[in-house]
Design a protein around this nucleic acid. Structure first.
Lengths: 117, 117
DNA sequence: CGGCATCCTAATAGATACTG
DNA sequence: CAGTATCTATTAGGATGCCG
């Protein structure tokens, strides 16, 4: 059993791999969407769920916790009633925007091309 | 049982989801790396394995087949001895480069910042 | 050289029900 | 409102061995 690397993720510990650092922050099917919807400004849990109706609460929670741990976003609890929790991009999170932006633009262009057929 | 969507992938069929089209082409831990290493020009299977020592042959094959099926790259077999197979980006594949490029640049900047600490 | 077949683990994600 | 708990399913990826 040789070496046992972390599975299902880009192998971060290889510096010769030029995409690894950023990929480890945006990998996951929902991660880029979360970052995208936060790029316009802070947003609450329920609003994010509304933005992405197809994601389950569990998965959204998991992604948010993960991104918080990695320093991409911040989580602030407002002890009101009913309680509200706000998520916002950190400076690190904002550094990822060029990639997300590029993905959005390519998606739009490809979608346009398809509908033009 | 309501609607049964495709699992473990960004939900392509939601047009209101602005990242879906591109994400469906670059999702997967190794996919962006493959596209990146092909961006400099056509490349053979063995060369790609050399570029990404951490990927197994099986996974690399799977990613290449997948990308070929989606029209991102082309596969051409040269019936020499020993056989050689060359992969190259298609025009569609080249459209994805801005996103890959952005990921590479962010990775480099973040790596620089870390080493500057 | 460039695969494919087989078996395996781990990560991601979905459904549903429940809670402070 | 913003989660947590539990259970299950799908998939990505890894290890190994064989083949034209």
């Amino acid at each position: 059993m040789p070496l046992k690397v972390r599975k299902n993720r880009a192998p971060e510990p290889y510096p010769e791999c030029p995409l690894a650092v950023c990929m480890s922050l945006i990998s996951g099917a929902w991660t880029p969407h979360v970052i995208w919807y936060l790029s316009a400004g802070p947003r609450r849990f329920g609003e994010l769920r509304h933005d992405m109706p197809a994601v389950s609460a569990k998965v959204l929670t998991a992604r948010l916790r993960d991104l918080e741990k990695r320093g991409v976003l911040s989580r602030s609890v407002h002890p009101t009633s009913p309680p509200s929790v706000e998520y916002a991009l950190t400076p690190l999170g904002r550094e990822l925007m060029p990639a997300i932006q590029a993905i959005v633009e390519i998606s739009r262009r490809l979608a346009d091309q398809r509908s033009a057929d």
